[in-house]
Design a protein around this nucleic acid. Sequence first.
DNA 1: ACCTTAAAGCAAACCTGTTGCTTCTGGGGG
DNA 2: CCCCCAGAAGCAACAGGTTTGCTTTAAGGT
Lengths: 189, 189
Amino acid sequence: MSRQMVRPGGRSARVQSAVHTAVRELEAEVGRDGLTVPLIAQRAGVTPSTIYRRWGDLTQLLSDVAVERLRPDTAPRDHGGLASDLTAWAEQFLDEMASPAGRAYIRDALLGDPDGSNAGQCSAYAADQIDVILTRAAERGEGTPDVETVVDHVVAPLMYRILFRPAGLDAAHARGLVAGLLAGNAAET
Amino acid sequence: MSRQMVRPGGRSARVQSAVHTAVRELEAEVGRDGLTVPLIAQRAGVTPSTIYRRWGDLTQLLSDVAVERLRPDTAPRDHGGLASDLTAWAEQFLDEMASPAGRAYIRDALLGDPDGSNAGQCSAYAADQIDVILTRAAERGEGTPDVETVVDHVVAPLMYRILFRPAGLDAAHARGLVAGLLAGNAAET
DNA sequence: ACCTTAAAGCAAACCTGTTGCTTCTGGGGG
DNA sequence: CCCCCAGAAGCAACAGGTTTGCTTTAAGGT
């Protein structure tokens, strides 16, 4: 998101959105590797130099678009209990992130991200979702672990394996991580 | 490493090593962003097309070099006990990986890695080191967790935070992860 | 309505990345 | 020991992506 807040109502905003749209359309049409800045510029009705000046290069533009796509569009479903909420969320997270498309977005997001702000944003999305789940659990009177603890015990292992060790990663593993977290955390209740 | 085993004694090997050396030298001289294939080729006394044909593009070449640099050069030190061995290893791992240089290498390794083999290699390095520690502990008669468990509880959280959430990551956090792992795992002894 | 300023358009220069073909090196067979 | 073969590097020309200085346009404030 590094370069988004620019005169929200004006021409910049139109260009921004036209470019993002062009990226998404062309990605579907010509594939991830067929994307080039001049091509995107043409589709967006913009000159290449505009893109280079605003985003720096293709990787940073793709990083912006990727982060946008990794934003959860809906709050985590309420299954009536912390364990089932977390389990369902972890399974869905894994599903989305481990898919070829998800992996590509994660890579893109990390790739064109000199200062780490896009990666931070992704992590914040996950943390927010977890926070919603934990808050709900607390309101029910359930004992809950810390957000950071959930990040360390569930999100991090899933993401690490997606990036470095895809083999043997499945929904069962995700469930195991959540179970391990809640078991080890029982003392805190 | 994907493209290294090529006629070990011949010209290919010389080119390989000349190019790798050139990358390391130039990275120190002109910085990560100043690197270009033609520049590296010139320093290595090679034509650009050679590099393009062997490595594909700059990112894949950098990925190869990065993985080489991420290989641990020494076995983990023996501190006489599982807890201290793991703690020391985790602290050192964090030190090396969280440094600006380490982060750059990780990013490079992930970046130019279409099939995930370089990332897998990095993960294997860590797993091997942990295996050495666990084997040593088992020989002492200590109860030990599984390698995969250590990866999930220590390596993954560290790596996830290095990539996505650098804030508040320090040696204390690393120690806490190891402590949490061993506490939760006490039952297995 | 004007004025300021940031961002987009334009066009030319530059350089990276690509490719077909040739040349050379090193290993294996006769 | 020499010759032949396959693979890899050199070379050169080309296509296209990237950079940059200058001009023009459009938002927003006065």
